[in-house]
Design a protein around this nucleic acid. Sequence first.
DNA 1: CCAAAAGTGTTAACGCTACACCCATGT
DNA 2: ACATGGGTGTAGCGTTAACACTTTTGG
Lengths: 227, 227
Amino acid sequence: MPKKSTSHPSPQDIKVAVDNCIFTVSDGELRILLIQMKKKPYTGMWALPGGLVQMRESLDTAAARILEEETGVRGVYLEQLYTFGDPKRDTLGRVVSVAYVALIPSSGIKLRTIDKYADVRWWPFRQLPKLAYDHNSIAAYAKRRLQWKLEYTNVAWSLLPPKFTLTELQEVYEVILGRKIDKRNFRKKILGLKLIHAIGEKTTSGAYRPAMLYRFWSKHPAIIKIL
Amino acid sequence: MPKKSTSHPSPQDIKVAVDNCIFTVSDGELRILLIQMKKKPYTGMWALPGGLVQMRESLDTAAARILEEETGVRGVYLEQLYTFGDPKRDTLGRVVSVAYVALIPSSGIKLRTIDKYADVRWWPFRQLPKLAYDHNSIAAYAKRRLQWKLEYTNVAWSLLPPKFTLTELQEVYEVILGRKIDKRNFRKKILGLKLIHAIGEKTTSGAYRPAMLYRFWSKHPAIIKIL
DNA sequence: CCAAAAGTGTTAACGCTACACCCATGT
DNA sequence: ACATGGGTGTAGCGTTAACACTTTTGG
């Protein structure tokens, strides 16, 4: 950017990072994955898992790589959220962070502990601690986007295992949107959209009356008014 | 990012740029502002106006600065769109581009010619040339976002002068959404939303029957189902 | 008086919301 | 038999979509 009237533009030296907001729903709570930092200025603080983008990888690839390093998960829903670039968001130097949202099913995820971090845990979104950097803002923004996506697209399926009951699906909506939904209206609406179909089976393990299991026809993203 | 099994992560050296998709509606067409490049590898090609982020400015500030440098416009609608980071999007080196969308009213904009570029022009969106970098993709994405925003928020007011007729407003919708809208339903809907109000005046200049002029109550962004 | 754009209501279809009871199973 | 979650239908209301003629002005 030559010829500005303002003070000399110093040569650009900016790092580009990716930070992931990894959501799941379990035990009736929206949860987000946080790591506890070891590194110097934020030791002991919790933060979103992230890292610098490598020279030869795209942003999407970087997000997927970091997601896999932290959780061992691959092939899940992963979408760019927003890019945060306040000059003072990192005290050590200028870092622009491209935030991503990942959605993973609650069932059977082994968190991979990695010695880069002191700890890795699922935190109930309602009770987040104070996070490093501007990560509280990023997480808040991610939740708003998730709420929107849930109402207007079919992403909900990314939060469920391949086979699920309608009650489980409804719980995902209720937990994330933060309100009760009428059971009959919900089922009518969802089944009317023809995005899922009952497979013959029923739940076996549970107590009381078994529930029908459903599967979704396609995981391809679609924009459809749901609620 | 220590301990990767893959080849040594080379030290990060990435430039961060901002590119603006500046839209307006005039003469019944959606138009976008393009600049013609002088610089070495893309000489003569058209591209989105953009530039490198300075060390001490935020991304939003950079976008606003570049917008003003190119057009002289200030205080218009400006929103971050998406960040494009394919490693090969710029042949000269690794550049991550944060794209912004700006909306400006068609009336009375003097394009400031700047000797950094060979030319600056409004292009009808329907007939874009092949652009430098990945700017065709960026522009296409920006248009999709604009279409969505028009239907679900009050951004349309950013494309109109302070006083406007309902026909002008409807034209903005028709041009951007690419479909005809029923005049009576449109007026009923828009007036019912209570976002605009008739001021006493009528159009003077035009031939034929004068139209009522309207003004919007507030330009604050709002999310409201419009169409 | 003619051309051109401005302005104005009604009806039918559809979608959304609210609401309460019986069913299948395990203990 | 009972406790627990699974499963089902209808009626009222509001919103949307389709549709055509009269009014005002300039030439």
